[in-house]
Design a protein around this nucleic acid. Structure first.
Lengths: 192, 192
DNA sequence: TCAGTCAGGTGACAACGTCAACTGAAAGCC
DNA sequence: GGCTTTCAGTTGACGTTGTCACCTGACTGA
């Protein structure tokens, strides 16, 4: 009925899902290969048939998240009913939303693993190129590099501050991530 | 000769130094209580006389780094020979420099531990208040909150991008963190 | 049909964080 | 000074984890 390749792919997916679920529920420490295997319905050693080690499994989860964000940003960019500013705000808020709803996953997306620092960066590249294209429509090809780098860095930082609950501090007067994104985008729009 | 309190304080410091050294050398995974104890010249159980658990030790290291940064920013703010923009650039670049020279320590400073998320945030508060005071001198008390929150978030993000080597990507055209900070500060100065 | 491939299971090992029990020297008290 | 208390430090032990070597059994291709 099910070929070997099919069942292997299903197991791999089950492992990824189980690991992502554990990450969401209890953070990085909760992701143990034993528990991942158990939730996927296999033994503790089974993950080694699909991932070189635990780190590779985590990288795969982060890569998956970057790809989904890339899809979303691409859809925003292609939407003819949105202004450049709206596309920008939409994309940045989508990124930051991950930080709010899935903080552990978010940290994974921006933490370079010791083994292969380039792996996650490659996965992030497409999302970032989408942003670059949007900004280029605002301030031109030349300046877009600098502003996009600043934009993504800032969005990353805003989300990071939120993840570590530092934006909730009273000295900021209850500022929201959306307000920060609006301020940022407005400043960039003013450059055009 | 040496009182008990003195030798205990010396051991505590030796433990902190050893842990910070291991963190620098091999990242978070390299920091094991056994190795920390060994480098500090004590046994593997000794750290538990000074820190509740491994996490508390790591928090202490992060707190220490925030305090040093606070000292530095305070000195910058008090320097009458610097303009507000220069103070700002100096402080932000100091923060980012930690990301460049001690990436593992930097990640520790911005990662909230599961146990007490507020502990590190409290330590970061003073540094952030210093920035708030500087920005208030630029754009006024009212707008300072928003711009400082954005500023620190962005600096955090810039450093984070650098730590994960994502700024080195060719699509940014070899942009440096200093350029990003300059762009950011210039945009904020334009608001006054 | 049959040898080969490969997903999966199991036993084992070293390393780790952590705790309980112990030791010995400094500190406080009479 | 002698006694008791305190407490930094050590050691043995335990459960958990990542990882490997080895085994098994079902699917695959010829």
């Amino acid at each position: 009925m099910t070929s070997r390749a099919e069942s292997a792919a299903a197991t791999r997916r089950a492992l990824l899902d189980a690991a992502a679920e554990l990450l969401d529920e209890g953070g990085l420490d909760a992701v143990t290969l034993r528990e991942v295997g158990a939730r996927a319905g296999v033994s503790r050693g089974a993950p080694y048939r699909h991932f070189a080690d635990k780190e590779s499994l985590l990288i795969a989860i982060g890569t998956q998240a970057w790809e989904q964000l890339g899809d979303r940003t691409q859809a925003l960019r292609a939407d003819p009913g949105l202004s450049s500013g709206e596309k920008l705000r939409g994309g940045l808020n989508a990124l930051i939303a991950i930080g709010r709803t899935q903080p552990h996953l978010y940290k994974l997306m921006f933490s370079h693993p010791p083994g292969d620092p380039a792996a996650l960066a490659r996965a992030a590249q497409r999302s970032q190129s989408e942003f670059l294209a949007i900004v280029a429509g605002l301030v031109g090809e030349q300046a877009a590099r600098r502003y996009t780098a600043l934009l993504i860095s800032s969005a990353n930082g805003i989300a990071g501050m939120q993840v570590s609950s530092q934006l909730a501090d009273e000295k900021w007067g209850g500022i929201t991530t959306e307000e920060l994104v609006d301020t940022l985008v407005a400043m960039i729009e003013a450059q055009s």
